[in-house]
């Protein structure tokens, strides 16, 4: 049971953060959208600050939390590039990723997000099944 307390704590923190951001600013937290805004919108400062904060916060792994298993050894650049292209293009075409659809969208029971989450979970599971 102990192995599930940290994931639950992390999830609660993610939920608390997205709920507070929603109630304060009226916006949803969708990383793929925020990244695109940081790159291509007219007002880049706020989304850029978000991305910097995200990277800093996400680096706390290993400082506050003992890793349960090591990071993968450096994998093939080709695999990482294909993966990045699919994630970058797919999340924009599908209007969201794990945060925008998976957390914020499911929280408000959006039909688009429920469908998108079911689809990306399915194709991700099949991909792991075929590549492992």
């Amino acid at each position: 049971m102990e192995s599930f307390s940290l994931p639950l704590l992390g999830g609660l923190l993610i939920g608390l953060t997205t709920a507070a951001y929603l109630l304060l600013t009226g916006k949803v937290v969708g990383i793929s959208g925020i990244l695109a805004q940081a790159l291509f919108s007219r007002d880049r400062l706020l989304p850029f600050l978000f991305v910097i904060g995200l990277i800093l916060g996400g680096s706390a792994y290993g400082i506050f939390v003992e890793p349960s298993q090591p990071f993968p050894e450096m994998r093939s650049p080709i695999l990482l590039i294909i993966s990045g292209l699919l994630v970058g293009y797919g999340t924009r075409l599908g209007s969201g990723c794990t945060s925008g659809h998976g957390v914020c969208g499911i929280s408000r029971l959006s039909p688009r997000s429920l469908v998108a989450t079911a689809i990306f979970m399915t194709t991700a599971i099949i991909t792991v099944l075929l590549t492992k």
Binding site: I31, S32, L35, V51, L54, I55, L56, G57, G58, S59, Y61, G62, F71, P72, R75, L79, L80, I82, S83, G84, L85, L86, V87, G88, Y89, G90, T91, R92, L93, G94, S95, C97, T98, S99, H101, R112, V115, A116, T117, I119, F120, M121, T122, T123, A124, I125, I126, T127, V128, T131
Partner: peptide, 28 residues
Amino acid sequence: LVLGAGLFGIGWGLSGYCPGPGLTALTN
């Protein structure tokens, strides 16, 4: 929506990175 989510899932399954965790890989 359907096509985009499908492609995203394939990319996610290939590396284990979705956009947020992928960005944090820059330091991790």
